[in-house]
Amino acid sequence: MLYSANRLTKEFKGRTILNLEQLEIEKHKIYALIGANGAGKTTLLNLLAFLVPPSSGKLCFDGQNGMRSGKNMLDLRRRVVLVDQYPILFTGPVWKNVEFGLKVRGIAKAIREKKVMEVLELVGMEDFFQADAHKLSGGESKRVALARALAIEPEVLLCDEPTANVDEENQDVILSILERINEENRTSIIMATHYLAQSRRLAHYILMLEHGRLSERNELFLTPASLA
């Protein structure tokens, strides 16, 4: 099992954002995380990315305790990467952003350069190699953020609304990339999304969040009303 969580909660200023009795996520699958605004999708993704600790409960990753600290936490975080709904790019050129994850891992420059070009070609952004990262459009920024995440070849890719605020053409590009990395690299993907059609296209499983609680369905019998 990739993730297993038991009685996982997250509170913020006295309010319970997330309250999961049990959660199990398999390796090498694509999960679509669906829920209304404020359902707790982003909070769950941040927990799974080990960016925030839970308020209570247990979270295991690949059989390891996901709630340790220090070097162990760093090791876990280096196997999982989260791409934000509104990703932020570091000041500087695109290539510097994409190589960041490789650089912090001490990967040699020659290998970094090769990998950066490879992933930029994968997301169709090779012409923006030297471009100022802060001058990109929303769709371009998302693709660069995705390239930045893919450069480090994570075991798990967490995406928060990967196609939100992106035009149809870019949406298709992004979804195709996710499909491809799951098939070729066996990367596990958990993506929060509002788009049912995308879930149908990509996901092996659906995770439905309602007011911070989980109900899981494999098949989609959801009416639009039930997503409100």
Binding site: N46, A49, L51, L74, R77, R78, V80, V81, L82, D84, Y86, P87, I88, F90, F100, G101, V104, R105, R148, A149, I152
Partner: peptide, 13 residues
């Protein structure tokens, strides 16, 4: 704060 989270999720110490 997204800079912090982005750096950490990309594996920064």
């Amino acid at each position: 704060n997204r800079y912090r989270n982005t750096a950490l999720t990309l594996g920064a110490t």
